[in-house]
Design a protein around this nucleic acid. Structure first.
Length: 963
RNA sequence: GCCGGGGUAGCCGAGCGGCCAAAGGCGGCAGACUCAAGAUCUGCUCUCGCAGGAGUACCCAGGUUCAAAUCCUGGCCCCGGCACCA
């Protein structure tokens, strides 16, 4: 089919309004959504996967008789549109290329420099591409998350979440640029010029008071090791600053002082020359002892507080630094506490863990030795030693009883942090794991926000309900279902609003804040149901009040007074018809973000009977490098990922759709490979040709062969249906695009030709093609159905008669072909062939014997004597006793590998005779002769007949080579 | 370390107790078609074979079973997520 024809069918679907949803109580409904895309740029083929899945499912269910609803929208919230608008402003080359490709007039580009306009523009461009992909979206429900009606909906949602106690306020430590304002630290964050992958590291600030009343504040990730401190490290030259906090004076590095002010208040004071500290002593918390302060190059003033507590027993770097000291300095350091963490025997160490701790000395010394870290210059080895030892101690270590009972390390750490807090100390210092620089070149910092609002996902009761919802879900793939409970458990309170420049809905409890984008996309399938009423003008935005939504979604209250009772009820009825949502479809990136919060929100807002019913997670189409497709993979050069428009022009929608569906299971990434798409398109060409041939008039085939084809069609259709029902579109595609053609090809090689049966089957086939390759289906079905194929009923297996005898006959023949082939192969390799094929059908008594053999209990081989005993009870077999014994003796040892075949339900000889023509062609023999084993006069030059078994004829190729 | 997944023929990838020497695809070989190439179609593609046979196979080692790629135990390795990491 010409790719250009696809547009024709897209127009037809639109003009016949196939995509429009109808509330039809006489029918079951199907309602699924795909995670809507964010307007970050132009769609690429990576986006296609979820859309294709969703569309094919909706198309299947529509044909299967359900009323379907497939809306979509644009998730304009957050930064993507802001970033895109800025790129337009900058006339960034890829954006310019995309705009040109979409045919956007250059004069209008200026309008797209405004983020909301950019979002709407991109949303429309997506819709256009969906159309070109043959995706049937009900556009009357189309919405972007910055539309005023959607905002009203989100405000209602937050009011209800607040009512339910799901919003809480607490201090929060947010990333912020001191000049530009709040900023999120994320690899995709384009407001950053550096450090997108940075994580927030939480240090514990441990106070070491000096004798002069000031306190050195060390930062550590392992406060529990404070019992092993032997000294403090400071930088050899960098001065420290005074940080005034309350009535206390702390000494920390200058950069730390500033960070502490952001997070804990106070002010930065004077600088203190560092050398004055060398050799002085500070007291150790939780212990009546003092340790010396020593300079060491291991201290980096920009990390932590510039003061490091040295625990040589457990920190390899400290151990090595200690060895590097001069003898004089060394003499000031108290003896190293051998160790303060032990490994209880109930958690045996693995081999690699034992290797890390081989030898003697403190654990840090052993780890340093094991990784080859001998000096401070061995940074990589030191890091490895540190990481491995810390992981191990955290996972399996316990505190020694002489220190603080035998607490596991994580608990001991917790307790330390708490006790510092209780003592009025600072407690925690947060910083980025690597420098983060904003787009304008300023350093991004972490600042305390005292009254941040959170979604209270850490709430145990809410989790319990959400777990319940999760358990009730149908989840594909099932592995995700196993993972989901731990994801829900792992969830903690999440900040849900922020200040700053991005798109979204103002937070109703404090409109100076914006709701963040993950939180405003959790309940939207409910709003899709309402949107058409707004779009059609029957409902005005001003009417979307809390009472309105309370009534529509919750059946609570009397509704919005300005909305007529009947309209309220109509919308409520629509919601009750389409809800619960049947399926939420999204990529694997949503496993930990969108899906869980989607469930949390539904669990919080809706009663059980309206809870969603399923999740379908798909993995990605990736670039040849195995990476997720991103801007830089897209281009027109070899190996690059083509822009979607270009791919559509090159291959057409159907080829792309089938490629997506058939190339991999949903739970698998697969690589973009233009050669495979080519091949997919060719497969479609073949299917098209086969269907057209099948539609022709002709002689058909024998009733037996037709019966077989009908039976095969019955099974294939049943399999396709059940595959769609179980959401396994790949299996469905294999049935329709691989097994179906293979079956028809066999029909043809077996002598079948176009005729009434094949035509009926082709009619069914065309409809089977429709969910996945709808354009091709329409093209082939043009004029053959009373409706468009998209609206025709999905074929029913019952339209094709099952025929066990026909199925068995064909299986029988295939088995014979296999046998013949296995003999012909070695012969043919020697360049031989034959003139005549002799076939022998087993004598009837063999059927009985096979049954006796089969009747033997499993695992227990029958004996010849037993068989003969049974044969004795059948006087009519008396004459064959010798043969029976011989046959049983030959069969018994082989029963394990070659069990009795099902008894043929047809006349083997008659069937073989009817198949002579086929066998002659298939095996290039001059002729085929069929004999009965028991007929005394039959030709049997090589005494083959006795090898015949019921269901498996004996045979002999006669004569000189041929082939 | 924890949670989840996985290791299948040259490669990708189905299968997840007997119908499995293992679907489908790629690659390879041969044939048909073609002036030729490409495309397409057909057959073959673990080893041996003296005619339907035998041997060896689904990471490794054990085990359960009449029967294991499929179930169990232990090991090794890989992937994803999380946690962790001055």
């Amino acid at each position: 089919m010409e790719t250009s024809r696809e547009g024709h069918w897209q127009t037809r679907w639109a003009s016949e309004r196939i995509a429009e949803a109808h509330l039809d109580r006489s029918r079951e409904k199907f309602y699924a959504v795909v995670a809507y895309p964010g307007p970050s740029g132009f769609l690429h083929i990576g986006h296609l996967r979820g859309l294709t899945l969703a569309d094919s499912l909706h198309r299947y269910y529509r044909m299967a008789g359900r009323s379907v609803f497939f809306p979509t929208g644009t998730h304009a919230s957050g930064l993507p549109a802001v970033v895109f608008a800025r790129k337009v402003q900058e006339r960034e080359p890829t954006v310019v290329a995309g705009l040109k490709e979409l045919g956007v007039a250059e004069e209008t580009w200026g309008e797209l420099e405004e983020p909301e306009a950019a979002a709407r523009f991109l949303g429309r461009s997506y819709l256009e591409l969906y159309r070109r992909l043959g995706i049937l979206i009900d556009e009357s429900a189309y919405v972007t998350t910055v539309d005023p009606d959607y905002r009203a909906f989100i405000q209602w949602q937050f009011h209800r979440l607040h009512d339910g106690g799901h919003l809480v306020q607490a201090p929060y430590y947010a990333s912020v640029c001191p000049v530009c304002g709040p900023i999120s630290v994320d690899p995709s964050e384009t407001d950053l010029s550096l450090g997108g992958n940075a994580e927030i590291v939480e240090y514990t600030a441990v106070p070491f008071p000096l004798e002069d009343g000031r306190t050195l504040l060390a930062a550590t990730l392992r406060p529990e090791t404070v019992y092993g401190v032997t000294n403090l490290w400071v930088h050899p030259t960098e001065p420290l600053s005074v940080w005034h906090h309350g009535d206390r004076l702390y000494l920390v590095s200058r950069s730390a002082a500033h960070r502490l002010v952001e997070q804990h208040g106070g002010r930065v004071g004077a600088e203190e020359p560092i050398a004055s500290l060398f050799g002085r002593r500070a007291s150790v918390p939780f212990g009546d002892r003092e340790v010396p302060i020593l300079p060491s190059p291991i201290v980096q003033p920009t990390i932590g507080t510039g003061v490091v507590m040295s625990v040589p027993a457990h920190a390899p770097a400290d151990w090595v630094a200690l060895q590097a000291l001069s003898a004089e300095e060394r003499s000031k350091v108290p003896p190293v506490v051998p160790e303060i963490i032990f490994f209880p025997p109930d958690q045996p160490l693995s081999e690699s863990e034992r290797a890390l701790l081989a030898g003697d000395g403190p654990p840090a010394a052993r780890a340093a030795r094991a990784t080859g870290a001998h000096s401070l210059a061995d940074t990589a080895a030191l890091e490895a030693a540190t990481e491995r030892l810390y992981r191990l101690e955290l996972a399996k270590g316990r505190m020694l009883p002489v220190v603080v009972s035998t607490l596991p390390v994580p608990e001991a750490r917790e307790r330390m942090v708490t006790s510092f807090g209780a003592a009025g100390e600072v407690g925690v210092l947060r910083e980025f794991s690597e420098p983060v620089i904003c787009r304008q070149g300023h350093e991004v910092i972490i600042r305390r926000v005292p009254d941040q609002w959170f979604l209270h996902y850490g709430d145990a009761a809410w989790k319990t309900t959400t777990h319940e919802l999760a358990r009730s879900l149908r989840i594909v793939p099932t592995e995700y279902g196993r993972e989901l409970p731990s994801v829900i458990d792992w969830y903690d309170d999440r900040p849900c609003i922020r200040r700053g420049r991005w798109l979204g809905t103002p937070f109703p409890l404090d409109p100076a804040w914006m709701i963040e984008p993950i939180a405003d996309s959790t309940f939207y399938p409910a709003y899709y149901v309402v949107r058409p009423f707004v779009a059609s003008g029957r409902l005005h935005v001003s009417q979307l009040t809390d009472p309105f939504f309370d009534y529509v979604f919750l059946g609570r209250g009397a509704g919005e007074p300005s909305v007529s009772r009947s309209l309220s009820e109509e919308i409520r009825a629509a919601f009750q018809y389409w809800y619960p949502l049947d399926l939420n479809i999204g990529g694997k990136e949503h496993k930990r973000v969108h899906f869980p919060v989607f469930l949390f929100t539904h669990a919080a807002l809706l009663p059980r009977e309206l809870w969603p019913k399923g999740l379908l997670v798909h993995w990605w189409l990736v670039a040849t490098s195995g990476e997720k497709i991103s801007k830089r993979h897209i281009g027109t050069k070899g190996g690059a990922i083509p822009p979607l428009q270009e791919a559509l022009t090159n291959w057409g929608a159907d080829a792309l759709r089938l490629f997506q569906t058939i190339s991999a299971s949903p739970e698998q990434d697969f690589e973009w490979d233009p050669a495979l798409v080519d091949q997919t398109r060719e497969r479609l060409t073949t299917v098209e040709r086969m269907v057209r041939e099948a539609f022709q008039d002709g002689g058909g085939a024998s009733p037996e062969l037709d019966a077989w084809l009908e039976d095969a069609a019955h099974q294939l259709i049943a399999h396709a249906r059940s595959s769609f029902e179980s959401l396994d579109l790949r299996a469905a595609a294999q049935a329709v695009y691989i097994t179906f053609p293979t079956t028809i090809r066999r029909y043809q090689t077996r002598g079948g030709s176009p005729g009434p049966t094949l035509q009926r089957i082709a009619d069914a086939w065309v409809r089977l093609l429709s969910p996945i390759t709808p354009h091709l289906a329409e093209e082939l079905g043009d004029g053959r159905f009373s409706t468009l194929v998209a609206a025709a009923p999905f074929p029913s297996p019952e339209a094709f008669a099952e025929s066990l005898p026909a199925r068995h006959r064909e299986e029988y023949l295939e088995r014979l072909e296999e046998d013949l082939l296995s003999v012909i192969k070695p012969a043919r390799d020697r360049g031989e062939g034959s003139e005549e094929l002799l076939l022998y059908v087993a004598a009837p008594w063999k059927t009985e014997v096979e049954q006796w053999l089969e009747a033997a209990p499993p695992g227990q081989a029958p004996t010849v004597a037993e068989i003969m005993q049974r044969a004795g009870k059948h006087p009519e077999l008396a004459s064959a006793r010798g043969e029976i014994a011989e046959y049983a003796a030959r069969r018994i040892p082989k029963l394990r590998n070659d069990p009795p075949l099902p008894t043929p339900t047809f006349d083997e000889a008659a069937f073989l005779r009817a198949s002579e023509g086929y066998l002659v062609r298939r095996f290039h023999v001059g002729r085929v002769a069929v004999y009965l084993e028991q007929a005394a006069s039959e030709v049997d030059p090589m005494r083959r007949r006795q090898r015949a078994r019921p269901g498996r004829p004996a045979f002999y190729f006669v004569g000189p080579p041929r082939r």
